[in-house]
């Protein structure tokens, strides 16, 4: 049971981690993207639509990435070039994704509710590592997207710590006017961060529909994008912290399955609410935005 719990934790953490790593880059560049939920939802839908159209797993993932990058490009246009309010624009992106996926889902799959399912993404066992008791199945017998998500953690930690690109991103997020004065191109940096984040949100969405649910239902993301936003705060805008926080939330979600079975006396709604309750409680303790990039959420208009 502990083995299943560990595996489930990693599986639940993966889509959140993918999205949160993208959001980390975006926030270090000074943009807060509430539209991340919509980007994930778009990715989850595009993956299933591509699979339905006869594409293989790779095509489905590519479709998810392309669709989520497209919706983030729209967001970037509005918040970077037009310097619009980021919270408002992000909310609109979420609404847009909910509407577009809802309408297209019904158009493609009909309103009857006959679910279209895909074959689950095959797990790739890493030889003898997968047979380590307890953590083997959790860490070394997962689908490719899981490995990708966790491999990105050190890469992003490195670039934000000492990589040229990461340092430039941070300049754009801390003092955009100074970064622009140095010729770093704040608009360009924020665009790049948002496009990468789109790709990662798309991967997170694709993981949800292709590897986890094996189908698409309306609102399949169920707030995971918003949880990813919280994960970035809890992780103190640092890739390792983000990974730890994502695993913590993954564990809270995995706990639902364990506890729902064993603790029949407690209402199941409590477990469904657990990740969200945890978010509020953890934020109330670590809350402070002291570690946040200085210009986070502030529209920047090139002088």
């Amino acid at each position: 049971m502990l083995e299943a719990f560990a595996a489930s934790t990693v599986a639940m953490a993966t889509p959140i981690l993918l999205a949160a790593l993208g959001e980390l880059l975006v926030e270090r560049a000074g943009v807060i993207n509430i539209g991340i939920e919509g980007a994930m939802l778009t990715g989850a839908f595009a993956a299933i639509a591509a699979a339905h159209a006869g594409g293989g797993a790779l095509a489905a993932v590519a479709a998810a990435v392309a669709a989520a990058v497209a919706i983030n490009a729209l967001f970037a246009l509005v918040v970077v070039n037009l310097a619009a309010n980021q919270v408002v624009a992000g909310t609109a992106i979420d609404l847009l994704a909910l509407g577009v996926t809802g309408v297209l889902y019904q158009r493609i799959f009909g309103a009857t509710g006959r679910a279209f399912t895909v074959a689950p993404m095959p797990p790739i066992a890493l030889g003898p590592l997968a047979r380590i008791p307890l953590i083997g199945p959790a860490l070394f017998d997962q689908s490719a997207l899981v490995y990708l998500a966790f491999a990105l953690v050190p890469a992003i930690a490195w670039t934000l710590g000492r990589g040229r690109f990461g340092l430039r991103l941070r300049a754009a997020g801390e003092r955009p006017e100074a970064a622009d004065a140095l010729g770093l191109g704040v608009y360009r940096l924020r665009w790049i961060a948002l496009l990468i984040a789109g790709a990662l949100s798309g991967l997170g969405g694709a993981y949800l529909s292709l590897a986890y649910a094996n189908t698409f239902v309306e609102g399949i993301t169920a707030g995971r994008g918003y949880v990813a936003l919280a994960v970035v705060i809890v992780g103190r805008w640092n890739a390792w912290g983000v990974a730890a926080a994502a695993l913590m939330f993954g564990a809270a979600m995995a706990l639902q399955f364990v506890l729902q079975v064993s603790a029949g006396a407690l209402p199941y709604q409590l477990f469904l609410a657990l990740p969200y309750l945890l978010t509020v409680v953890v934020l109330a303790f670590v809350g402070g935005q002291a570690a946040a990039p200085a210009a986070l959420g502030e529209p920047y208009v090139r002088g």
Partner: peptide, 16 residues
């Protein structure tokens, strides 16, 4: 046979 979620699209586009 158009899903009522079309309204969300209208609203989102109006905001943007």
């Amino acid at each position: 046979g158009i899903s009522p979620e079309l309204v969300y699209v209208v609203q989102a586009l109006a905001i943007l």
